[in-house]
């Protein structure tokens, strides 16, 4: 996977990523490194491009300029005669399989049980034998506290439980990096904690995570680094205590001010 001469590169390296929707430039040159084992939180107001950035990394969105590397390998595109070319669907699928993603709206498969949701990628994408895939699914459902619910369909689960199944589905694939896009935003307040505690335990187990979140206490406690996005750019970056405790700009100060009382 990683070419040896790139071994100094971090797990994820995005350089100068630009993304336009029609004429509107949504990402205006993002540079972002995430090293193995890091938990990087992306904060920023609505519309600043956080979701778009995650979707570009997982190749759900095509980007217009710049490069994204995973383990030193350019993903999504190759250069042919000086021209960027989108890779074939199958190559893109292989690259996506190395990156997990958890969505705001869970997106569980409604016609499958919790266990089948987790097993699908293992059996179909990784071609793992059924029995082994089931063991793996049971293991991860247990990790997220849902061993008892593995026969349940999504509609029989609460939002928090559904989101934990979605996390199990993503991490069971053994991805290099897991992307979380406001995964607690669609949840009732009393269900947020159970999802955050699962994420915290994943972070502690050394999983590399890129987390878009408005849960500032979680960000402060769990993130190794915080990235503040503003208008399609990274406007501030650093350890949580520094970025959040000592905001470098008025924009960041006013953004954090909305979560007032959290940072004394």
């Amino acid at each position: 996977m990683a070419s040896s001469d790139m071994s100094s590169e971090p797990l994820l390296r995005a350089t100068n990523v630009h993304k336009r929707f029609d004429s509107v430039e949504v990402l205006k040159g993002i540079d972002l490194d995430v090293a193995q084992g890091e938990v990087v939180a992306i904060i920023g107001s609505s519309g600043s491009g956080k979701t778009t950035m995650l979707r570009c990394i997982n190749l759900l969105e095509e980007y217009d300029d710049g490069e994204i590397h995973i383990d030193g390998e350019t993903i999504g595109y190759r250069i042919v005669g000086g021209v960027r070319k989108r890779l074939r669907e199958s190559a893109i699928a292989d690259q996506r399989a190395r990156i997990g993603m958890v969505f705001q709206g869970f997106n569980l498969f409604p016609h499958m049980t919790a266990e089948q949701n987790v097993m699908l990628g293992l059996t179909k994408v990784q071609k793992m034998p059924k029995a082994e895939a089931r063991d793996r699914a049971v293991h991860w459902l247990d990790r997220v506290g849902l061993a008892e619910r593995r026969e349940h369909y999504p509609y029989q689960l609460s939002g928090g439980q559904q989101q934990r199944v979605a996390i199990a589905r993503a991490v069971a694939m053994d991805p290099r990096l897991v992307l979380f896009d406001e995964v607690t935003s669609a949840l009732d307040p009393e269900l947020v904690a159970e999802v955050l505690s699962v994420m915290k335990s994943l972070a502690e187990s050394g999983m590399t995570m890129l987390v878009v979140s408005h849960e500032m206490l979680f960000v402060r406690d769990v993130a190794t680094r915080v990235v503040f996005m503003d208008g399609g750019r990274i406007a501030a970056e650093g350890p949580p205590a520094e970025v959040m405790g000592n905001p470098s700009s008025e924009r960041l100060r006013s953004f954090l001010g909305r979560f007032h009382g959290l940072f004394g």
Partner: peptide, 19 residues
């Protein structure tokens, strides 16, 4: 979101369609 979740676990077009 169903297609995107299937893409996110690395499924290809026919797999997404079938399963």
């Amino acid at each position: 979101g169903q297609t995107e979740a299937a893409k996110a676990i690395g499924m290809r077009f026919w797999q997404r369609l079938t399963y």
